[in-house]
């Protein structure tokens, strides 16, 4: 479902690093850009989760569901469902 959307819900950038910085570079920094940034006023007739799923996920609307996991952990970013 996520791939059909015209936006991605996370972005990343590489902060500058100098040879004199004390810590090894973190590499990429990540930040969320969740769906509420893109939709404006919610359009009609959007697909919904089943009531049971909606109660678990925290939203009735599939378009607003945005799974988050620690992006700095190995193997992160995979939704459990």
């Amino acid at each position: 479902m996520k791939s059909q959307q015209p936006f991605t819900s996370a972005k990343s950038y590489v902060p500058p690093h100098s040879p004199f910085d004390p810590c090894p570079p973190i590499g990429r920094k990540y930040y969320s850009t969740p769906p509420n940034l893109y939709l404006g006023f919610q359009p009609s007739d959007l697909p919904q989760f089943s009531p049971a799923d909606a109660l678990r996920k925290g939203t009735l609307w599939k378009v607003f569901y945005d799974y988050y996991d620690n992006p700095y952990r190995k193997g992160a970013g995979k939704s459990r469902d």
Partner: peptide, 20 residues
Amino acid sequence: LRFLREREVVHSQRFREAVE
């Protein structure tokens, strides 16, 4: 915590709609 984070996303959406 993921459930609570998702609710923040939805609340932000609704406040943005309130501005509209």
